[in-house]
């Protein structure tokens, strides 16, 4: 039996962007990274979009003119965009702009948290599988393959229907289903990195396997990992939207972009803006994360 070395394409050809991952001594490293990101146009645009959404979500209580669930009976008659409701209002007379702003908050918490969870779990699995190889590696890669072979949407429906839909449960299922992908990437890199001479040097001074995996190997895998995490966050935004659309997302009435589309897509012919506005919100955020990922990869390749 051969072990499929199916790396997600984006990770396979990524060179660790050394200037991105190795802060020089002195100064706040973050600023240097930020300065570097601006050298790539896609990365700059992507970061701008993501940061803009983050600001809007953070400031939602201050800048949203209406409470997200407040109905304006007057707007029910004319839900189209107006001076009172810049983006119009939905079928229950709720202000779309306010709901979009508030709706950004759960998305921007759940998507990154789920990615962090997947990265932590996936890195651990990938490091173990790649470093030890043999049967441990085989068991882990097979387990990952099994998880990845499920049709994910059905898996989500089963799990969320059984355990109930909540922010934590969504984070949980996203972590579980994304970790195998991260594990594959990390395993592939570990297989390469464990042969480096500095790993042999660490063994010769008697370091534990855990130290070698976490301190000697993992930091050198972080370039492709960061790129993939950006991409993965974008995908999670889509999935959160899909879950909302299927009615197994965050429970109503609090605004949820996917749920907003579900509630109003039936009225597409009459009031298209009701569904299109949340769709546009989802797309722009996904595009933002993707551009950031593409830009970071470009920076990594250039070095």
């Amino acid at each position: 039996m051969t072990t499929p070395e199916t790396l997600t394409p984006i990770a396979a050809d990524v060179v660790v962007p050394s200037s991105l991952t190795t802060p020089r001594a002195g100064g706040f490293a973050g600023w240097r990274h930020l300065a570097l990101v601006t050298e790539s146009v896609p990365a700059t645009v992507g970061l701008a979009i993501v940061l803009a959404w983050a600001m809007l979500a953070l400031l939602a209580p201050l800048i949203a003119s209406y409470a997200p669930n407040a109905s304006d009976l007057a707007a029910l008659a004319r839900p189209t965009p107006s001076r009172a409701h810049w983006l119009g209002s939905d079928h229950l007379g709720r202000d779309l702009l306010s709901r979009i702003l508030w709706g950004a908050r759960p998305v921007l918490v759940i998507a990154p948290l789920a990615v962090l969870g997947a990265a932590a779990l996936g890195s651990l699995l990938g490091l173990t599988a790649g470093y030890y190889g043999r049967w441990i590696g085989l068991v882990i890669t097979r387990a990952c393959d099994i998880v990845l072979s499920f049709p994910v949407i059905i898996l989500y429906m089963i799990i969320l229907a059984h355990f109930g839909s909540s922010a934590w449960n969504i984070i949980g299922v996203l972590t579980l289903t994304k970790a195998p992908i991260i594990a594959r990437i990390v395993r592939g890199m570990t297989l390469d990195l464990r042969e480096r001479e500095y790993v042999a040097a660490a063994k010769m001074r008697g370091e534990s396997s855990l130290y070698i995996m976490l301190v000697e190997i993992l930091p050198n895998a972080r370039g492709p990992l960061i790129v993939d995490m950006c991409l993965r966050t974008g995908y999670n935004v889509i999935i959160i939207g899909v879950l909302g659309f299927l009615g197994i997302g965050l429970p109503p009435p609090d605004p949820d972009w996917g749920g907003m589309v579900k509630d109003t897509y039936g009225m597409m012919m009459v009031w298209p803006h009701m569904a299109l506005v949340p769709c546009a919100a989802i797309s722009s955020l996904v595009v933002g994360f993707n551009l950031l990922a593409v830009g970071l990869r470009e920076l990594g390749l250039r070095d």
Partner: peptide
């Protein structure tokens, strides 16, 4: 070791 580029951990 032989290879100066892989003997030290770049991180």
């Amino acid at each position: 070791f032989q290879n100066p580029d892989s003997t030290l951990n770049p991180s």
